Amino acid sequence: MATFTPESVTVGQIAKLIDHSLLRPELTGDDVRAGCALAARYGVASVCVRPGDVDLAVDLLRGTDVLVGTVAGFPHGSTTTRIKAAETALAVNQGAAEVDMVINIGWLRSGKLDEVEADIRAVVAAADHATVKVILENAYLTRQKIVAGCRAAERAGAHFVKTSTGFAPGGATMEDLALMRSAVSPAIQVKAAGGVRTLDTLLAMAAIGVTRFGATATAAILDDLAHRQEHGRPAAETVAGTGGY
């Protein structure tokens, strides 16, 4: 778990915790170009783009240290395993370094854990060397199902478990994130997405073990930190209980 203090945290450190999200369906090509330029300017961990934008993002970010990520089975998770695996293989072949896949939510709610695990395992295999993050969509799950989904993801070889797509009724909460962190081994990382809009929220979540954040408010979060440091104010108050939405 990371403990950031006003004295030690830097804008660059926080930037490398952020996946700048470019997933809204209405985004134009110019919007994607602007988003990639923003990601490069701040030096974030990655951009997460729609599958049809992978080629463009790879081209735009070539020569930077910003990774290109995309999604599979997004946003509902109900496409077949073969299609999720094919989406993943194509994206990786195009240059994507990370894939955020959505589980089959109905299968998990129905207790079909073997099928959920096989679905994830197929994507992990198709991703080859690429990082796989498994989106549970917690808004539709009980605590028991969240734990079961996290453990299935770990058994299947995923690298991250992730709270949400950002398109469901709810997003990341401190309670869910703490539960997810406790449900998997230290080898698995936790990503928060859906409502991570402020610096204080991000740092509160980092303090309980979240290592990656999906965000559209990237510039606001990082500019807030720079402003606080410039004016000698604390970078954040990492108070437990800060919500994601």
Rank of each mutant, 00 (worst) to 15 (best):
A57W: 08
A86Q: 02
A97R: 15
C36E: 04
A85E: 10
G63K: 10
H76S: 12
V68P: 06
A85T: 04
A118D: 14
D119A: 05
V92M: 05
E115A: 11
L113P: 02
A86Y: 00
D59N: 10
K84D: 11
D53M: 15
T88V: 00
G69M: 09
H76M: 13
V54L: 06
R62F: 02
K112Q: 09
V32K: 12
A125W: 01
D114Q: 04
D65G: 05
A34E: 13
F74Q: 11
E115I: 03
V116Y: 00
G111D: 01
T81R: 15
A72N: 07
S46N: 09
G95C: 10
M101T: 12
V66M: 03
N104D: 15
T81C: 14
A39C: 09
G63I: 10
V58K: 15
I105R: 14
D55L: 03
G63N: 09
P75K: 03
D53N: 13
V58A: 11
I83M: 14
A57L: 11
A122M: 02
G77E: 14
I105H: 11
I120E: 09
V123D: 01
V47M: 12
A125S: 13
V58H: 11
G69H: 05
V49A: 05
S78N: 13
S46C: 13
V71R: 08
E117H: 00
G35F: 05
G111C: 01
V49C: 05
I120W: 03
A97G: 15
G43W: 01
V32N: 07
A125D: 15
Y42Q: 05
L108I: 08
V99S: 02
G95V: 07
A89L: 04
S110H: 05
S78Q: 14
S110M: 09
V123E: 01
C48N: 12
A72R: 05
A40I: 02
D65V: 04
V123F: 00
G95P: 08
G73D: 10
G43L: 01
L90I: 02
D100Y: 07
